[in-house]
Amino acid sequence: MNLLEVQHIEKYYGKRGSITKALNDLSFSVNAGEFVAIMGPSGSGKTTLLNCISTIDTVTSGTIALDGTDVTALKGRRLSDFRRKNLGFIFQDFNLLDTMTAYENIALALSIQRVSPNRIDGAVRKVASQLGITEVLDNYPYQMSGGQKQRVASARAVVTNPKIVLADEPTGALDSKNARMLLDRLGHPNRKHHATILMVTHDSFSASYASRVIFLKDGAIFHELTRGADNRKQFFPKIMRVVTMLGGELSDAR
């Protein structure tokens, strides 16, 4: 079953005369429970794509359907309702609220959905143990390491059981050890509860955790890889090969 259906979307920037096509007739779909990575050189439209799917940005044409709902047609209150109920976000710079503890940051995602306060505690502790952050729950962001912060942010994204988790360079600000730990943990709920993850990255190593990798170039799909029966170590060189094929343009890939 296709959870996410992206059809012929285009995104133009600029005015008449100097139009930049950030996304150029892009179509793909994601099944429920998939972990999809999107790779591509800078300026290939990865982040624009993610922003369009996450309803932060709007497309110029085309449709994006999540579980049958056309998100490009949503506006105002229904839009934020939709975002709150169906989407989970993980950002490169964590976007934790610095005035609140880890616990409260995670709980906030539930309380803005009007989840009853006595159900919040259980949900927060469960997701915290899955992501290995139980011991930092009472800490403020400034008292945590980058890896811990990102795992708290991930906990906030998945605690509401969203239909899809959208991750924008989640490992971008982390060292490789912390990145591995995050992806391991993030993979954990993915496998067990079939949460769907769409992750934008330019890091081949991070991408190798995904079950499918979509490569973008100039706003269009350049190539697509499916892990299939491979394990991560077998999958990684395949990704590297495509990255090399994309050439110097993905030079910032690790």
Binding site: I56, D81, R83, R84, K85, L87, I112
Partner: peptide, 9 residues
């Protein structure tokens, strides 16, 4: 901005 991104009205 963060609040808006996680879907607060």
């Amino acid at each position: 901005d963060t609040l808006r991104k996680i879907g607060v009205d």
